[in-house]
Design a protein around this nucleic acid. Structure first.
Lengths: 107, 107
DNA sequence: CAAAACAGGTTTGCAATACAAACTTGTTTC
DNA sequence: GAAACAAGTTTGTATTGCAAACCTGTTTTG
């Protein structure tokens, strides 16, 4: 019986917005909290400010998160929330990853 | 109890050579066969020739596959084999993916 | 048998990206 | 009140993924 792995074409269908590690990290954090501040996100991901800023912008453009700008006293604080679309995209992405992982316990 | 997801920093450590979908598809195919011809690889992945060529070159440069050039009669045939390093990299990658996937069966 | 079509790949050119350095705007400290 | 600092954004750059164009040899065809 010929070894029959996952469909290689399916791999090419992965959502590149989600697939990029920096953004996947961001979405992963956002998925587990209601709202996350820019600075917290930066600390927890280790991304540079510039990098984090552009990735969140890209995620917002994709409709996967929304940006909330507020003031903490008189200093401005930017926070993010994952959207339903973002959650859905992440779910789909996870499903696709599962599909391409070999079943647990191969020789 | 606060939801405690996967470590976001770990996501940034993913091997970008493997992480790129086209190359992941290639490695996935190579992992399940001893040797695979260029043309078969092209058909099964759906990649363009140019694209396939450059990705296999990158994988070879990374030491993840080796290229075998031979003749079938008088026409040249290029084939590829995954190396031990390639197999190891793929294994590690799979492990990392598993670590970042939420446990099966969440609400 | 010459030329035209074709096969198997590789190289080139280009648009898109990820990333951090430099900048901006406002606030706090000295 | 000048200088340092904070929170982000924009700019500049090197890298990348991709397919069109190219190359070398083989097969088909008029």
């Amino acid at each position: 019986m010929p070894k029959n792995g996952p469909d290689p074409r399916a791999i090419l269908d992965l959502d590149r917005i989600v697939h990029e590690p920096a953004r996947l990290a961001i979405l992963t954090v956002l998925a587990s909290a209601e709202e996350v501040s820019f600075l917290f996100l930066q600390r927890v991901t280790g991304l540079s400010k510039g990098n984090l800023s552009s990735h969140t912008q890209k995620l917002e453009a994709a409709g996967y998160l929304e940006t909330v700008k507020a003031f903490q006293g008189r200093i401005p604080v930017t926070s993010f929330r994952i959207t339903e679309d973002g959650r859905a995209a992440l779910r789909v992405y996870h499903q696709q990853l599962r599909a391409l992982l070999p079943k647990e316990g191969k020789p």
